[in-house]
Design a protein around this nucleic acid. Structure first.
Lengths: 184, 184
DNA sequence: AGGCTCATGTAACCGGTTACATGATTAT
DNA sequence: ATAATCATGTAACCGGTTACATGAGCCT
């Protein structure tokens, strides 16, 4: 469901092709919403059928043809009312298979659990590095006109940054406890 | 997929009925894995078919009959190898429809976005209360087996606590920026 | 009389993933 | 040569959600 609103959100900034949307997701939303390209194309078809967007095929000679989608009035309304709904209860919910593994970590010796947490920490650090280059790519979308928009984009980046920092600190605390722990 | 490993994990502690599992999920894993009761029963059926668990019907006169499930040797092996896999890349991934709404918050006036963030903050605080404040009661993990298990359970609680605290602080920062922001 | 706990399921649906398929142009 | 970029899709599958269905006993 949310993918379709993400698409509507981008198309609300201006017409785009499926390929453009894939790039847009990759360069901005990917930290909290990873979109498969195949899924985007499927969703575009559904949205067009619903009348939320309309597509126009652009014939190109040097490159493959493409289909540019624009948001319709009804599409705009649907998007705006989704926004107006505000934060749902699910916003505080955090689903994680990794934490489930940690929960059952008592079935492994401390050294193995510690190794798992160290791997997690390393992945977090890699993630942080990748994030470091994001604010710039995000500014490409805004063009000086709309500082107001970019503030919100920065909010989501800040969230991701705080989240990962928190993960690393937590992992450190866990690892320390595991190191000071005698074999059960 | 993860639900089935959660079930296997609990059954690895000892035999349980579907109903027991529902309670177990509600009282421990629910902060990072919310399981529907219908889904648990479906998964139990699948796991039995796979030979990972075996069920035995207990006839009760005063209460509805129940089916007690036990983990099999192959089930144990599957569970242990899942644990041994360690943290996957997906561990750092955080999917959130709410953050997507924040990302597109520039389409709303600052007052409305601020209201959304205040609602989010309030939900976080409610969540914290439900969790029960357990910040510094984490000391004294000795060497016996029971404490060894609970240490890991505490790890996941700590994560949840840090996560929510981080959410609240972030929301505060965002709200402040929105309050000091002129209408676009 | 009304609501809670115990106890287990089915059916329809849907959002999302994985694997597969194609094929031209452009840059190294 | 070969890799990357541009560009779009289909089909099968699956994990999970929602809605629905049942029914006895216990507590107030």
């Amino acid at each position: 469901m949310s993918l379709s609103f993400g698409i509507l959100g981008f198309l609300n900034y201006g017409p785009m092709s499926g390929y453009d949307l894939i790039k847009a997701f990759e360069s901005s939303l990917q930290f909290f919403w990873h979109a498969q390209s195949s899924h985007i194309y499927l969703e575009l078809k559904k949205l067009e059928k619903k009348g939320y967007i309309s597509g126009e095929t652009i014939v190109q000679s040097d490159r493959p043809n493409k289909k540019i989608f624009s948001i319709t009035e009804t599409g705009k309304q649907a998007f705006m009312s989704w926004l107006a709904e505000g934060a749902g209860e699910d916003a505080t919910q955090f689903k994680s298979a990794f934490l489930m593994k940690v929960f059952f970590g008592g079935n492994m010796p401390p050294a193995q659990s510690a190794a798992m947490l160290r791997k997690f920490k390393k992945d977090c650090e890699t993630y942080l590095e990748k994030m470091g280059s994001t604010p710039e790519s995000i500014e490409n979308y805004g063009s000086n006109k709309e500082n107001y928009q970019t503030m919100y984009w920065q909010f989501t980046v800040d969230f991701g940054y705080g989240f990962i920092k928190n993960c690393i600190e937590w992992a450190d605390r866990c690892i320390e406890k595991l190191e000071n722990c005698k074999e059960p």
